[in-house]
Design a protein around this nucleic acid. Structure first.
Lengths: 172, 172
DNA sequence: ACTTTAAGTCAGTGTTGTTGACATTCCAAG
DNA sequence: CTTGGAATGTCAACAACACTGACTTAAAGT
């Protein structure tokens, strides 16, 4: 494994010759790209005194309105205490509403208020704008490849959440 | 922009119809994939009492041995003070050597020691292993697309650093 | 009644980022 | 040669956000 070569060991698939250098380039690309990916929302969040944790909460509440805290915990992969701090701030500021469950009164169902939706839209549009440019520059087939590699890179549990959130509009 | 449609406005390139939903899926894929991407190194780092910041420093020192602090600062995009804390720990633990510059005695040139190289190899191999699996699952063309999209997603400055680190081995 | 589950809270700790103040070194203008 | 500014790097203090662990409250399940 220290000889710098990997892959191409005649599996059923097409051969893939991957040098350590090529893999390393992919790793660095992830690092730099993720920074670009979060840069625009970070600037917006700063205006409101929020951080990435708040963004993530807002994003997934927007994505699955009425979700409960436990579910959000699973998606975000953080501790209860950590999420709670963020959620408390968002609720106090009136961006998120927490409603007691009807069937199960222990649960709290989370929704974005109007102002919450407004911030979500602002953050989301900034991030989509960058994504759109990147997709356009890279082209149609590149996008499909991009998605395939990312999905293969996820942990199985996370991939399950990811695919569970697929909608009818999204095929491939 | 609130109508959920974007792209396909007959530019010179092939048409790209991108719904907000598709873009959002890409955003979420980045989020989940990055978590998988960092999961393995995180586990290793924990054993040694280090964090991601240490990993990044080790990675780029390994990549460009003899680099000075200022250069590293530009690559990592953090403040001098933040990097310094990390560097100090690595130097105290004997993983990194800091040598006073010959031409300019203000500069400190950074190198990995033998134990530093060993940790770098451990971290790097874990991350490459995941990358390798993802690349294999996704296939050859997907990898090219993956790289193209990531590069387009970077900030221009970061993309410059990224491309500057390209080696003769890496074409495309 | 007893246990489990969902949510929230309090206290303490660690990593990582920030700003501010400071030391050293280089270089160029006077 | 000296002096002042710019560049390089260091030290100290603080804020954000993650973590663990222990605990409370309320509701559901058995």
């Amino acid at each position: 494994m220290a000889d710098g070569k990997a892959g191409g060991t005649k599996g059923g698939q097409a051969l893939l010759f991957l040098t350590d250098e090529q893999l390393r380039k992919g790793i660095e690309a992830m690092f730099f790209a993720y920074r670009g990916f979060t840069a625009d929302p970070d600037r917006i969040l700063e205006k409101y005194g929020y951080g990435r944790a708040h963004h993530r909460a807002i994003h997934f509440i927007s994505r699955a309105p009425g979700t409960n805290v436990n579910n959000l915990l699973g998606i975000l992969g953080v501790t209860k205490q950590s999420l709670n701090r963020v959620l408390r701030a968002l609720i106090e500021d009136g961006l998120v509403e927490s409603r007691v469950g009807v069937q199960d009164k222990r649960e709290r169902h989370l929704y974005l208020s109007e102002s919450g939706k407004a911030l979500e839209a602002e953050l989301s549009e900034a991030q989509r704008a960058r994504m759109r440019v990147a997709y356009r520059e890279a082209g149609h087939e590149a996008v499909a490849g991009f998605r395939r590699v990312l999905e293969a890179m996820m942990d199985p549990d996370q991939a399950a959440y990811f695919n569970a959130m697929a909608t009818k509009e999204d095929k491939g």
